[in-house]
């Protein structure tokens, strides 16, 4: 992908104008550790798997609450 194309599709900030004084954000810390990494949980190789697990658990909890409401209605 060309540099121009990359910039057009990115939702991240563009590079600062070199003619301007340094922006205040220059002092911000811990950059560059946003890369995807393995969740490191047994049974889960990707984060998508973890999110799916949370979603399924959510559906089960809502279903259990609905059943609970019916049983004690």
């Amino acid at each position: 992908m060309s540099e121009r194309r990359k910039r057009k599709t990115s939702n991240e900030p563009r590079a600062a104008n070199p003619a301007r004084p340094p922006a205040p954000e220059a002092g911000s810390g811990r950059e560059g550790d946003g890369v995807d990494e393995s969740p490191g949980l047994p049974g889960f190789r990707t984060w998508q798997g973890v999110y799916l697990f949370v979603f399924v658990l959510f559906v089960l909890v809502v279903a259990a609450l609905a059943v609970f409401s019916q049983v004690y209605a």
Binding site: E12, E25, G29, R30, E31, G32, G34
Partner: peptide
């Protein structure tokens, strides 16, 4: 979260 961390924002 990945965007915030990648940019190192406060």
């Amino acid at each position: 979260l990945p965007i915030y961390r990648r940019l190192g924002v406060y």
